[in-house]
């Protein structure tokens, strides 16, 4: 019984939150890794692209709510998501036309594009704050829980409760669908294969008649969809705040690099590695340990390895350790 209680506590406080957070990071890291593979630079504006997409979703959700539209037990934001994706796609394509394309024509070095993306980051950041302001916005509605602590306890008779938030369930389901679609697209369709070919060897792709502008356009479209989805899921799970998305840049970059930049599979693995390390190391283990250890050994302190404020430090240390032992990341960052 104690073992079961420990397991439930572990699931409730570590495993479920980490899976949800990991899915959000993975979706974010996928966008970063796609840009890195195909446009060949790390996009500093990615966090703000997520914020922009999420902002659109928030605004559309409010509009739908004011019109009395709802999605039953699911959050209305899911209905807003497709529109938000379209809006973000328009923004990134416009940015590419006005900003990035010029540098491609100039055959600019990737590091110049990194600096360019800083400028885009400033603009997007300003845009989001300009439109919706810098404050916290809540937009989640519908059922709050799939299983609540009380229901779980009544169901199982255990002392520990287990809660699964609707947003956590949705995060995982949506992330799985997105990833499946992405891999199907990259590995099974002509366009997807041409993207992989372009990422692998640009010159040979040109010689094979692959149109680079088309590849780049598809990349931005996919990135916009991934970023918006990641942004909305994160916002539903926590709350929407522009600055937080900017700060997500570090764990997202860390996920992409730990997995191996340019490798989509790596981005997903990296997202979960970072999420699980962050959650486990900043979790107070007392609750789990008190079931596992005999009473005499029961810990008096919280058994929290690091305070939650150091979660960035955790992603960073994991990153350094991986880079020291495997400089190319867990999955050799080869191509998209």
């Amino acid at each position: 019984m104690d073992f079961l209680n420990a397991l439930v506590a572990l699931s409730n406080f570590v495993i479920i939150p980490a899976i949800a957070y990991g899915s959000q990071l993975a979706l974010g890291a996928l966008g970063v890794t796609l840009i890195y593979g195909i446009l060949r630079f790390s996009n500093f504006a990615h966090g703000d692209t997520m914020a922009f997409g999420a902002m659109l979703a928030v605004l559309i959700t409010w509009l739908l709510q004011s019109m009395g539209v709802s999605f039953g037990p699911l959050p209305t934001a899911l209905l807003a998501l497709p529109f938000a994706i379209l809006g973000t796609m328009a923004l990134v394509l416009f940015t590419d036309r006005v900003v990035y394309r010029f540098y491609r024509e100039q055959k600019a070095k990737p590091v110049i594009l990194v600096i360019v993306s800083m400028g885009v980051m400033f603009i997007m950041n300003g845009l989001v704050r300009f439109i919706i302001g810098p404050n916290d916005q809540r937009f989640a509605d519908g059922e709050r829980f799939i299983i609540s602590v009380r229901e779980f306890k009544a169901m199982t008779g255990l002392k520990e409760g287990l809660a699964i938030k609707t947003t956590q369930g949705i995060t995982v389901v949506v992330a799985v669908i997105c990833v499946a679609l992405l891999f199907w697209f990259l590995n099974r369709t002509r366009t997807g294969k041409s993207m992989r070919a372009y990422s692998d060897n640009e010159d040979l792709a040109l010689l094979s008649g692959i149109n680079p502008e088309r590849v780049v356009m598809y990349t931005w479209l996919i990135v916009a969809a991934l970023a918006t989805t990641a942004g909305v899921l994160y916002g539903l799970d926590k709350s929407f705040k522009p600055f937080v998305y900017f700060q997500l840049l570090l764990p997202i970059f860390a996920s992409a690099i730990v997995g191996g930049l340019g490798s989509p599979l790596g981005a997903i693995a990296g997202g979960f590695v970072i999420a699980f390390s962050e959650v486990t190391i900043t979790y107070a283990w007392k609750k789990v340990l008190k079931y596992m250890l005999p009473e005499s050994l029961e810990p008096s302190s919280l058994v929290q390895l690091l305070s939650t404020d150091y979660k960035f430090a955790v992603s960073f240390v994991i990153l350094i350790v991986v880079l020291l032992f495997k400089p190319t990341g867990l999955f050799k960052g080869k191509s998209v």
């Binding site: 400028g119 980051m121 400033f122 603009i123 300003g126 300009f130």
Partner: peptide, 17 residues
């Protein structure tokens, strides 16, 4: 008018680009 304060980020980005 309330959002005018956020113009600065936008402007910095535009100047850089």
């Amino acid at each position: 008018i309330d959002s005018a304060a956020h113009m600065r980020l936008l402007t910095m980005g535009v100047i850089l680009l």
